[in-house]
């Protein structure tokens, strides 16, 4: 991998990790479209991914550091007391429940799924499926909205993340399992799940980002020893990780603002087009 390719991949990963368009899908499709010779399945690629994930997770932690402080202290307090009091403690426990399905599935089945589906054509096909999921979630959401109201009023009728039931949090968390398929977006699946669970768009995005942080951080931290194997260009990879983190921070800020009144539709349409273009170009 050349320096330019590494930096581009860092930027791409950071930007697409939080946009509901599948970072893994893009990371599989884009190099193939450009006929870049490096392979995602190559063991030397793992340390690169580790640092990119750590960059993204750091960006999310910086963005939500006050919330994470309250969530962590809330978890400890509730765990010791054996009872939930207040919104922070409830959000902490909702995140624990929501993280379990993807954490377990990722731990046990990620390498299996990657080996099975990490080819560009499959990723392009799953990107189309991702687009249909996003558009489908919005179709169902529109049925639950008041038609004559403004977008702000429509959104206000739905719930914040703290009001989710634990069953709903588990189901939203289970949506993250879909992201094991390259082309299915983790944030897209959880946002779609959040919308179906009755969250406001902005809250669905916030819950999705909070849910993603432990999984992305753990995926990165657990592989840190890979960074210290011989022959790893740590400086270049670190620069790509910084770009990835900056892109993730910028895209998270953009999305939180977008989802005040915006919807998933444009990202759904983008996935349909990008997936179709990928299938056409990768014949």
């Amino acid at each position: 991998m050349t320096a330019a390719q590494a930096l581009f991949m860092g930027l791409l990963q950071g930007a697409t990790e939080l946009f509901p368009v599948s970072s893994l899908g893009h990371a599989v499709i884009v190099p193939s479209v450009f006929h870049w010779s490096f392979k995602q399945s190559d063991p030397s690629f793992l340390p690169f991914l580790v640092l990119l994930h750590l960059g993204t997770a750091t960006a999310l932690l910086i963005l939500y550091w006050r919330q994470w402080l309250r969530i962590v202290t809330g978890f400890v307090r509730a765990a010791l007391r054996g009872r939930i009091q207040g919104e922070d403690e409830r959000l902490a426990m909702l995140l624990v429940v929501g993280t379990l399905p993807a954490g377990l599935a990722g731990l046990f089945f990620q390498s299996y799924f990657k080996a099975l589906f990490a080819n560009p054509r499959a990723a392009a096909a799953f990107l189309i499926v991702n687009g249909l999921i996003l558009l489908g979630a919005e179709v169902l959401r529109r049925r639950a909205e008041r038609r004559q109201a403004s977008r702000t009023e429509q959104e206000a009728a739905f719930r914040p993340a703290e009001a989710l039931s634990f069953k709903a949090a588990l189901l939203v968390g289970a949506c993250q399992v879909g992201a094991l398929f390259p082309g299915i977006s983790r944030s897209g699946a959880t946002m779609a799940g959040g919308l179906l669970a009755g969250l406001r768009h902005q809250e669905a995005a916030r819950f999705s980002f909070l849910l993603a942080t432990p999984v992305i951080a753990a995926a990165g931290l657990l592989e840190v020893p890979e960074l210290f194997k011989p022959g790893i260009p740590l400086g270049l990879y670190a620069a790509a990780a910084v770009l990835s983190g900056a892109a993730a921070y910028g895209s998270a800020r953009f999305l939180i603002r977008w989802f005040r009144v915006g919807r998933l539709d444009p990202y759904g349409v983008y996935c349909l087009l990008a997936g179709s273009a990928g299938l056409a170009l990768l014949r």
Binding site: A79, L80, R81, G82, R83, V96, L100
Partner: peptide
């Protein structure tokens, strides 16, 4: 740890 936390939550009060 989560199972232990769950046990604490399941205690009779």
């Amino acid at each position: 740890v989560l199972a232990a936390v769950g046990a604490n939550f399941a205690r009779d009060r």
